[in-house]
């Protein structure tokens, strides 16, 4: 040590250690190493969790109530290879997915249209404010029961439940997005010759898009909840019915298996929505974290 003051050997070793990693050449390998580390810790956590569940269900707790990973896995394999008590698993999935997707599309459309309309018209929003607040305060999930009475056991009652849940999630964001449009942009468009309708389509809607897309993430989750709860309430097909049947036969592995199937569907939808968002918002500057980070 060439006379540097007061640096203990340990400290200087610590200080020196990261230096080669920071060199530009090895940035890529540092990134790879970091990702490997994150993934291996994640994997370890999952193994730890499933392992301790399996072990405790084998030796201490009652697998009748808590099931265990191996039986859940077995149930999933059964469902996909030889079908469920209600028939083909694919049919149940497709029914629930159709209900959720229909409720999602209709609810999101209605939410966007009404949100933007009310967001742009102070008169309309003043008139409707108390009604919207009241409707939002209603415990909407209870409506599922009403919808089964109104629309029967088929898909339309589940679509209605999903619709109601999605609508409010999207509506408030679209409303806020339409409210917060930069007045400067609107004035500029009007000067450039835009009609009221053109201001709406070229300024208001794109401005509100990031707000709306943000709400769509949670909205598809709501649509699935609506469909499944609707199926709990009364249905002849669907994943909710499957879970409900598992419950009534004390088949806890079946409940977990149903949960897993629904989770995978939700994750896939989330991935699709993120891809859509990336496409629609490609004009946005990349988030500082994404660009600056290595």
């Amino acid at each position: 040590m060439r006379g540097e003051p007061d640096v203990s050997p340990e400290a200087s070793a610590v200080l020196a250690a990261p230096a080669p990693v920071r060199a530009p050449v090895s940035v890529a390998s540092a990134v790879r190493r970091r990702r490997m580390k994150i993934w291996s810790i994640r994997l370890a956590l999952v193994v730890l969790w499933l392992g301790s569940w399996e072990v405790s269900a084998t030796y201490w707790i009652d697998p009748f109530f808590y099931s265990k990973p191996s039986s859940v896995w077995q149930r999933l394999v059964d469902w996909f290879s030889s079908g469920t008590s209600q028939g083909s698993i694919w049919e149940q999935m497709s029914v629930t997915l159709q209900e959720a997707a229909a409720g999602f599309v209709l609810g999101a459309l209605a939410g966007v249209v009404l949100g933007i309309l009310l967001g742009r018209s102070h008169l309309l929003s003043d008139i409707c404010a108390p009604f919207i607040k009241a409707a939002n305060a209603v415990p909407r999930i209870v409506l599922a029961a009403l919808f089964v009475l109104w629309f029967g056991l088929g898909m339309s009652s589940k679509i209605a439940t999903a619709f109601v849940l999605v609508f409010f999630a999207v509506f408030f964001n679209a409303f806020q997005g339409a409210r917060e449009v930069d007045r400067n942009l609107v004035n500029n468009a009007r000067i450039l010759g835009a009609s009221r309708f053109q201001v709406l389509t070229t300024i208001v809607v794109p401005s509100a898009t990031s707000w709306i897309l943000a709400s769509l993430h949670s909205a598809f989750g709501f649509a699935l909840i609506g469909a499944v709860v609707g199926e709990f309430t009364g249905a002849d097909r669907g994943l909710g019915l499957l879970i409900d049947r598992s419950r009534s036969t004390f088949d806890s592995a079946g409940i977990y298996a149903g949960m897993i199937v629904i989770t995978v569907i939700a994750l896939l939808a989330e991935w699709l929505i993120t891809a859509l968002e990336k496409r629609l918002l490609k004009w946005r500057p990349p988030a500082a974290s994404a660009e600056a980070q290595i």
Binding site: N184, N187, L192, S195, T202, I203
Partner: peptide
Amino acid sequence: GYMFQNDAVLPWRSVLDNVAAGPRY
């Protein structure tokens, strides 16, 4: 024609489509 004090270009449009806005409207 009116150039505002604050930036009023549309952030979600490319330069070309920003400039084309007036004729399109």
